[in-house]
């Protein structure tokens, strides 16, 4: 238990009441890096198929929103770091609907998720990280 040197035993005891404290080791079969997207906007492109633009818009909402991450799912376990790597990237994906053709253009910010320090997974950090990253959602 490396972390016990850094934090006092007392703090460890207190933090471990069952309040998001996690011990100081990494289960390391996780991928070290990952890319995720937060989608800001979307458009339907019928791509010459004559698809109804209104329905297309609704369905592209679902399609693109499904590609969008809830950043708190990445922040909350703690120990990972999020870096913004690109803004307003246009991603074209097929609408993927059996009843209508065309594409969706999902406009998204791109983030890199990487291990920061898994031994520092604890609530204080997690909350600070949450504060810091709250603008990610904007």
């Amino acid at each position: 238990m490396v972390v016990l040197n850094k934090l006092s035993r007392t703090t460890v005891l207190l933090l471990s009441l069952g309040l998001s404290w996690s011990p100081a080791f990494a289960a390391s079969n996780d991928p070290a890096e990952e890319i995720f997207h937060i989608v800001n906007d979307y458009r339907y492109d019928p791509a010459g198929t004559g698809g109804d633009p209104d329905t297309g818009h609704t369905l592209c909402g679902t399609r693109c929103n499904a590609l969008s991450a809830d950043y708190l799912n990445y922040m909350e376990p703690g120990g990972w770091e999020i870096l913004k790597v690109a803004a307003d990237v246009e991603m074209t994906v097929p609408l993927n609907n059996p009843f209508m053709k065309g594409n969706c253009i999902c406009i998204a910010d791109e983030y890199l998720l990487r291990i920061d320090d898994l031994s520092r997974v604890h609530p204080v950090k997690s909350e600070r990280a949450r504060e810091r990253s709250s603008e990610i959602a904007r």
Partner: peptide
Amino acid sequence: GSRKDIDRVMNAFDAYFR
């Protein structure tokens, strides 16, 4: 609506609540 879409609306009104 969907949570993402509601987030967009809140942001547009500069009224995003985390």
